[in-house]
Simulated assay, not measured.
Amino acid sequence: MRRSFWRTVCALTGAWLLTHAASAQCSRVVFSANPDYPPYHWAEGDRIVGASVALTGRIFDELGVAWEARHVGPWPRVLKSAEHGQIDLIVSLKATPEREAYLVFTHAPAFPNPMAVFSAKARPVRFDSPQDLVGKLGGRTAGDRFGDAFDRYAEQSLTLEDADSLSVNFVKLAAGRIDYVVTGLYTGRAQLLRMGMSDRIVPLPRPVNEGDIHHGFSRRSPCAALVEAVNQRLATAQRDGLQRRLLEEALQQWQRSQAGAQRP
């Protein structure tokens, strides 16, 4: 019992020392994100706001590290800024081999990012498996992917029309021109709030897949030394259900911001 106690003390002390050594190298973290990806994050003036900022800011506050959520421009510019070390961190994005060349990703996910099937309330669609969509006409945004298994099945057995944007797909769905739309659960809900259509189109209960997104520190930033400390706190947030709660709160924040923007 005594030996176990001291092992725990040593582990906690080591984690504390690691965090404070990293903090000494990184006195301030500047992070950014896709400026149009609600409810995870979106731009308001020169700031990025949303669930990603709420979670990440909380983590850095716990670590005693100053931070800034900065809007640096369009999404390609955000990626380039991290690649060149002009920002320290990109929050809540998909880890890919190409991005891993210049980003150090957390192992624990920043947020869940499940894909879902949306249907019109007036014309409900059953979805327990991809086979239920055979014979129906679906919509997706050009370039979107939903996991290898679903993508392979869709290519072989489903009929999906590509559109330039999610809003176009939801308009087509509301008009009865397609039977369903496949997109991200939370981003789809945010888009419906933006369009004022959340009372007409709803996500179906069973997700297409249970994807995740992660934080990525620039390999050129001294703040990359914080990745393990951030990883530990993300894992704790996941166990506590904090991430999903923050997403629901951010959807309400997004809805209020859209209502304010529409007032004359």
Score class of each variant (00 low, 15 high):
Met1His: 14
Arg2Ser: 13
Arg2Gln: 14
Phe5Lys: 07
Trp6Asp: 03
Gly14Arg: 03
Ala15Pro: 01
Trp16Asp: 07
Trp16Asn: 09
Leu17Tyr: 10
His20Ala: 07
Ala24Ile: 07
Gln25Pro: 00
Val29Ala: 05
Val29Ser: 03
Val29Arg: 01
Ser32His: 06
Ser32Lys: 07
Asn34Pro: 00
Pro35His: 09
Pro35Leu: 05
Pro38Tyr: 08
Pro38Thr: 08
Pro39Trp: 08
Tyr40Thr: 11
His41Ile: 00
Trp42Pro: 02
Arg47Tyr: 10
Ile48His: 02
Ile48Tyr: 02
Ala51Arg: 07
Leu55Gly: 04
Thr56Trp: 03
Thr56Leu: 12
Gly57His: 09
Ile59Cys: 09
Asp61Pro: 00
Asp61Arg: 15
Glu62Ile: 04
Val65Lys: 06
Trp67Gly: 00
Glu68Thr: 15
His71Lys: 14
Trp75Val: 01
Val78Phe: 03
Val78Glu: 02
Ala82Trp: 04
Gly85Trp: 06
Asp88Thr: 03
Asp88Tyr: 03
Lys94Ile: 13
Ala95Ser: 15
Ala95Met: 14
Pro97Ser: 12
Glu98Thr: 12
Arg99Ala: 07
Arg99Gly: 06
Ala101Trp: 00
Tyr102Val: 02
Phe105Asn: 02
His107Val: 12
His107Trp: 09
Ala108Leu: 06
Pro114Trp: 11
Ala116Ile: 08
Ala116Lys: 03
Phe118Thr: 02
Ser119Gly: 15
Ala122Ser: 15
Ala122Val: 14
Arg123Ile: 05
Pro124Ile: 09
Pro124Tyr: 12
Arg126Gly: 04
Phe127Gly: 00
Asp128Gly: 14
Gln131Trp: 10
Gly138Gln: 08
Gly139Asp: 05
Arg140Tyr: 07
Thr141Ser: 04
Gly143Asn: 09
Gly143Cys: 07
Asp144Leu: 09
Gly147Trp: 12
Gly147Pro: 02
Asp148Tyr: 11
Ala149Asn: 11
Asp151Met: 05
Ala154Gly: 13
Ala154Gln: 12
Glu155Met: 10
Ser157Thr: 11
Leu158Lys: 08
Glu161Phe: 13
Asp162His: 12
Asn169Tyr: 04
Asn169Cys: 09
Val171Ala: 15
Lys172Gln: 15
Arg177Met: 07
Arg177His: 14
Asp179Ser: 08
Tyr180Arg: 06
Val181Lys: 01
Val181Arg: 01
Gly184Phe: 01
Tyr186His: 13
Tyr186Ser: 02
Thr187Ala: 09
Arg189Thr: 06
Ala190Pro: 02
Ala190Arg: 03
Leu192Gly: 00
Leu192Ile: 09
Arg194Gly: 01
Ser198His: 14
Asp199Cys: 01
Pro203Tyr: 08
Leu204Phe: 11
Leu204Ala: 09
Glu210Ala: 14
Gly211Met: 06
Ile213Lys: 03
His214Lys: 13
His215Lys: 07
Phe217Glu: 02
Phe217Leu: 08
Phe217Met: 08
Phe217Ile: 04
Ser218Thr: 06
Arg220His: 15
Cys223Trp: 00
Ala224Trp: 01
Glu228Pro: 00
Glu228Ala: 12
Glu228Lys: 10
Ala229Thr: 06
Ala235Leu: 13
Ala235Val: 02
Thr236Asn: 00
Arg239Phe: 06
Asp240Ala: 15
Gly241Lys: 12
Gln243Lys: 06
Glu249His: 11
Glu249Leu: 11
Gln252Asp: 13
Trp254Ser: 03
Arg256Phe: 05
Ser257Tyr: 10
Ser257Glu: 14
Gln258Cys: 10
Ala259Gln: 15
Arg263Ile: 07
Pro264Tyr: 04
